[in-house]
């Protein structure tokens, strides 16, 4: 039983590291894209002029 727990423990750590990498990737891409001027807002209720201009570029 102890061995099973140990195996499971090391698996959890691997999955944890993997998930952390995925989060870090998405976060860093977000930062880079925002720095390049990507819009943080989406169309929610009304269409805004500044977004249309951005899309036209």
């Amino acid at each position: 039983m102890k061995q099973l727990d140990l195996n499971r423990g090391s698996g959890n750590i691997k999955i944890g590291i993997l998930l952390f990498i995925v989060v870090a990737l998405i976060f860093s891409v977000t930062i880079v894209k925002l720095k390049q001027g990507a819009l943080m807002q989406g169309y929610d209720h009304i269409i805004r002029q500044n977004m249309l201009e951005k899309n036209d570029e």
Partner: peptide
């Protein structure tokens, strides 16, 4: 693209 985005 920027180097970082190309890498991704």
């Amino acid at each position: 693209n920027s180097f970082f985005l190309s890498l991704i």
